[in-house]
Nucleic acid binder design. Structure first.
Lengths: 408, 408
DNA sequence: GTAATTTGTCAAAGGTCTAAACAAAAAATT
DNA sequence: AATTTTTTGTTTAGACCTTTGACAAATTAC
């Protein structure tokens, strides 16, 4: 039961029904390809005539491609298989991180094209945009216009104002009120630019992923554990943005209001317990005990090395990780109690040690979750190789073609 | 951008466009009545012909009523005013609480009919349903069938399984796996029964309220502070239910994982800091100091009396309330960081002291919220006289007629 | 009394789903 | 080898809606 917003509704026109069914057909082709018209009509529980009409339109538009052959049927006329047609426009996905920026190309259906490349992130916004434009131009083979590229999706760690296209505040990049969209539009000409927060983008990457068993999950939460903790929430197949586009910040829900100080200024945020920095400082705190911090050594030491030490049976490293696992689970319990998603995705460097962490995480979840059923929530770890942020950035460009039309 | 669920979609038919526009028209009549066809066509940004056709259908169905006169226009033909027509079916709203059950009738448009009545809650489910049926029959004037009543909405404090119509667990009522829907259907014959959790119902009451300025808010959170803490979340005009229909439990997100014990078994839940019991025990804890608790005195002493004492300048009562206010604000900050709603509603006995609490609440919110803008979130207090739970229960019956059709 | 203005209705046109018949292609049966 | 059966894809006519433009009705201004 959804309420219609009397200040923001969308009337149905003659073409609305077609528009709806078109998107459903596209969605089903995407998830079931190769698929015939007849099979589609069964999936959609409608007649073949409607499907034929719809598909012919999609063929004309170049969104769908026919191929003569599929596996032959038991009897009867052979079906003609339908596929999504990746048109010649590429999507450019950009993931801006503290020290390096990553870049990936995909075709119009979201499939990766070529290798992921990366380059150092310039922290001056103007410099950054210039270097980005240079890299994108190179990746596209010299051209930098809408003929070579269907759009650029840029994922930024921080708070975005999508209406004005500005980065309101990114502690990671030390940006404040950077008019990123304006800067980019000047460099990228007629190419469409989409911005998104990195936590939200990660959630998008899973919702719009074709591979795997994720297509049935429409209520998910993606938790990204890295220098900070980013969270994206999807409810009813749609990102929870909130009034200021800042929804999702589970990272700053406290585990203990008088816990350790967090980068955000408050105390005891979840992030202050489970970020890589928190895990590392826990390791050093217990390791070097009362000795004053050793900035150089610590700066060089990464979470990956800590995990390696833990695997080599370094007791201190193990307990540091186990503490993180416990706090991770306690926070996940809150997410489960509040959102009750059908699946939780976890990303970040720490996932490489998931085999070590999982039992502790599960125990901690059960400690605070409101019913035993909720304790068995589906959790899936997303390894770094899958580049969730980049895939989310790509989805900003490729997914709208498959999204439900706004209606009512 | 909403993703279509490939396992659960709804195809558009010939009638879909009409259905959509019909619901939009109803919504607009509801929020703008009295309103003429011509004005509607302007609101909907369509032509008068479509509106005429649509309205005539609604007139035939008896959903809308014409009235000759409205305030005359400056020039031109006088418009005929349209109103929602409350048909002769009544909705019965039931709010089950620990000691008493409340009951209210509304007409089909959601307007209250008659007085709110109440009776003691029988804690045996079968007894309860029987006494409820007796009371509803009396309220309906002796009849207990679909001719006299369009449906019964029952609001229960606890976890519900809407699919099977059972109360999975209600600590307040001490119910576990009570097959409430089955029990009720036996007593209520052909009358439709709708169940809902009380926290979620409160949120519904505000979304579907016609009065006030709430109609534009489609992302809201309702926090109900009472013996426990119930929370309902609405995103994009739709309740967040989650996979097990348990979403919303902000009451059991911790303020401190090793804080005071909570009824749920965990420690340091928000509820353990701000429920009426928590406030009262804080008062007694500091008031009678090390003396052992005085069960009788405490049992008799209510939060209302504590508020009265505070207003009479009882320092201990004031500090107990101020602590609650601070913890309330700290928890609200989490809600704001996670959901970023366009408005937060707060209900419960404590709201009667809102003038005392608000400054402290606001300060606490600002302490933990991620941006100054978020600190100025819109908060509205819902007094007990407005019976939010009952209005939510009524909405279960009356609102579906105005809801957006499920599409795509 | 006439013109201007606003409201509400009607009929024709255009777009979409829907149902049934039809043509095409391939395997099974006679 | 011819016929039947089955499955796929298309065509055609009908039903339902929105959209457009014209038109009658009602009211005020001049």
């Amino acid at each position: 039961m959804r309420k219609i917003n009397p200040n923001n509704f969308k009337l149905a026109t003659r073409g609305t029904s077609r528009e709806i069914n078109r998107q459903i057909a596209l969605t089903l082709i995407r998830t079931h390809q190769p698929v015939s018209r007849a099979e589609l009509s069964r999936l959609m529980e409608t007649n073949r005539a409607s499907v034929t009409l719809l598909i012919n339109e999609l063929l004309d538009e170049g969104l769908v491609r026919e191929e003569a052959q599929s596996e032959p049927n038991k009897r009867g006329r052979k079906p003609t298989s339908l596929f999504l047609n990746s048109r010649n426009s590429l999507a450019v996905a950009v993931d801006v991180r503290k020290t390096r920026t990553f870049l990936m190309l995909t075709d119009s259906t979201g499939n990766q094209v070529g290798e992921v490349i990366s380059f150092p992130t310039k922290l001056d916004p103007a410099d950054f945009v210039q270097s980005l434009a240079w890299q994108v131009r190179k990746a596209l083979g010299g051209k930098l216009d809408a003929s070579a590229c269907g759009g650029v999706g840029v994922v930024v760690p921080g708070m975005l104002d999508l209406k004005n296209g500005t980065v309101v505040h990114s502690p990671t990049l030390k940006w404040r009120n950077v008019e990123l969209l304006d800067l980019m539009e000047k460099e990228f000409g007629d190419i469409e630019i989409h911005l998104e927060n990195s936590g939200k983008a990660c959630a998008l990457s899973q919702i719009w992923s074709v591979r795997g068993d994720g297509s049935g999950h429409n209520d998910i939460v993606f938790v990204s554990v890295s220098d900070g903790v980013g969270v994206g929430i999807v409810v009813n197949g749609e990102l929870v943005r909130g009034r200021h586009n800042t929804a999702g910040e589970f990272g700053h829900v406290p585990l203990s209001i008088d816990g350790p100080p967090c980068a955000c200024g408050a105390n005891g945020c979840w992030e202050a317990y489970i970020s890589n920095l928190a895990t590392l400082s826990r390791y050093f705190g217990t390791n070097v005990a009362s000795r004053k911090p050793q900035p150089i050594e610590q700066a060089e030491f990464t979470i990956e090395e800590l995990i390696a030490k833990a695997r080599a049976n370094d007791g201190k490293a193990l307990t540091a990780l186990q503490s993180t696992a416990r706090y991770l689970g306690l926070g996940l319990a809150s997410i489960i109690n509040v959102i009750d998603p059908s699946r939780i995705y976890i990303g970040g460097e720490i996932t490489e040690a998931w085999d070590l962490l999982e039992p502790t995480v599960r125990d901690a979840i059960k400690e605070r979750v409101l019913s035993t059923e909720l304790g068995e929530a589906s959790i899936r770890v997303v390894p770094a190789i899958e580049f969730p942020r980049l895939r989310g950035a790509a989805a900003l460009i490729t997914a709208p073609a498959f999204a439900a039309p706004k209606v009512a």
